[in-house]
Amino acid sequence: MQPFTIHKGKVAGLDRANVDTDQIIPKQFLKRIERTGFGKFLFYDWRYINEHTLNPDFELNRPENQGATILVANENFGCGSSREHAPWALQDYGFKAVIAPSFADIFYNNCLKNGLLPIRLAKQDVEYLLQESVRADYELTISLEEQRVYDGTGFDRTFDIDPYRKQLMLKGWDEIDLTFVYEPYIIEYEKKHHPVS
């Protein structure tokens, strides 16, 4: 996983609630067996009118959102399917963090496993950021170490994250390697409950 420490970047707003993972990455792109290259299919049905034409009305296609690395959206972002292709696509497109009032559980987890930082902020803070995001030069800084999001001109909030996940993300560690440290406990559990038949 890519480590995440501190990031400063442009903000794109997607003022919709219940954005599901079918919208983030539609099913026709799930047939690939790689982890990379999903960015061009991100929000495919919203982003493109047809194979060759971008939809100018879609939020991410607006001029002020070009080059954005922080996505701000509304409640229950990432609901629906467990497809990890959703965070892969957001990351491949260039996003480093997603801010919303709430996230669906599986999506939230999947982000953490990939170094894409999901940040829960209060609804009114998200509304504020959605308003500010229409400015082409609006930027946020995110410090994972300090668990803090700020714009340098007055907006400054802290956010919660599980300390264990935070450590993994700061270091960019492979979780499976870490789990193998606990293998003696797994062996002991298996002896008792799941002997190899």
Partner: peptide, 8 residues
């Protein structure tokens, strides 16, 4: 679960 968890 997601694919990273499948691998785990």
């Amino acid at each position: 679960i997601g694919t990273s968890e499948v691998e785990h």
